[in-house]
Amino acid sequence: MDQINKIALIGGFRSLGGSLIWPFIGFALYKVYGFSLDFVSIFYLIQASVNIIGSISGGIITDFLGRKNTMTISIILSSLALFLAYLINLPIPIAGLILLQTYFNNVYNISSTAIVGDIYKGANNLVKAFSRQRVGINAGWAVGPLIGGYIFTTFGFRLLLLVSSVIILVSIPLIKLLPDFKGEGSILSFNINRDFLMFLIPTFLTFIIVGQLGFGILTYYNTVLHFTEFQVGILFAINGIMIVAFQDLMGRFINKRIKLISIGMIIYGLGYFSIALVTNFYLASLDIVVITIAEMIVTPLSQAIANSLASQRSRGRQMGLYSMVTGIGRIIGSSLISELMSYYIYTPTILWGIISSFGFISSVLYYIFLKKIKNVI
């Protein structure tokens, strides 16, 4: 089995366990445990701080311990955090343990991204490799939210914590089959170039809009259009199934077409603005198709560009910074939509118009950036 197929399979098991609960965390805090939308917004802001700590320290850990050890340790500790949340089952401890699990998720994501960059060289190979990795990851996402939505609706959020903690452990034996890589030099030396830092600006804006595929969509559709958690789980499953079925094909199409990331962000903006026009489940399903097409274009190109601009000796640390920016973007996106919903949840053109603007702005910034560094990648 090729190394990237092993990585994709590991990512599939890992994402299956994670996607059981991730789309429902903010919603559970709001609906199940009785926290206000303001608290949910604060929770996501705290999660952003945890993301910063996890990304920086995770990058250092990845270079120091090696990719394989870091992936294994982070999975075990993430599982333990979820299991403790299941046992304790009290609102504040659950929120705290989910934040702890967020930390270990960040560490895992950095190590799994870095190992792809270590094995495959050049932007074109990286686009194809990250596309294949996403096939595995989204195989988990294709069924995880659907199963999670069913368990949530039928048995409650607590059981989700237990099931997720068990499933994510399945991938550990597969990690032992991978080659290992470590960083070099001082663990505090990042060796970051200016182009990499400039790339992080549109990346941050990108992941504000990417982060809406979770709390934002679930809460809006449940509150305004009265979709059940299971119905929204079906929407998430459409997203995952499309990526499993078509990401490899899309990877071949976008390979050597790095500038298509700008087009992808325009599609993202249109897809999220169109949520304001959705009136039933069928239109919501069609709109998630548009959003998924944007995701299949943008995400592997973003990962490929970031890895192309990073050096192997500090790849873990630089991917830590990339992970920090993408993670903060997602969390700020969730926090922002939570705050905006307090005022505009029944004024969808304003609500989703603000969110979609991040897609259009980042599209312009990507275009300017890629014109400048076209000879670098």
Rank of each mutant, 00 (worst) to 15 (best):
L277T: 12
I266C: 12
K259N: 11
I288M: 10
G271L: 08
R252S: 09
I266Y: 00
I258A: 01
M296R: 04
N280Y: 07
G269E: 02
L286I: 14
I261R: 02
M265D: 09
L286E: 03
L277C: 00
T299W: 11
I297F: 08
I275P: 00
I254N: 13
S285Y: 13
D248P: 14
N280K: 06
I263C: 05
S262Y: 05
M250I: 15
F273G: 00
R252G: 05
K259A: 13
Y282E: 12
S285I: 09
L270I: 14
G271H: 02
I254L: 03
I267L: 05
F253D: 03
I263S: 09
I258Q: 07
D287R: 04
M250G: 03
D248K: 15
K256I: 03
N280I: 00
T292K: 02
L286N: 12
I291S: 01
A294G: 11
Y282C: 15
S262L: 04
I275V: 07
T299N: 12
F273R: 06
G251C: 13
F253Q: 07
L283N: 04
S274N: 15
Y272T: 04
A294I: 12
V289N: 12
I254W: 10
A284Y: 07
S262Q: 06
R252F: 00
A276C: 05
K259L: 14
L249E: 08
M265S: 09
P300A: 07
L249V: 15
S274P: 01
S285V: 15
K256G: 03
I254G: 01
K256R: 07
Y272S: 09
L249F: 12
G271R: 05
G264S: 10
L286H: 14
I275N: 09
M265L: 12
Y282P: 03
M265Y: 06
M250A: 04
F281K: 00
P300T: 08
L260N: 12
F273A: 09
I258Y: 05
I288K: 01
I261T: 06
I297G: 04
N280F: 07
F281H: 00
I263M: 12
M250V: 13
V290D: 07
I266W: 06
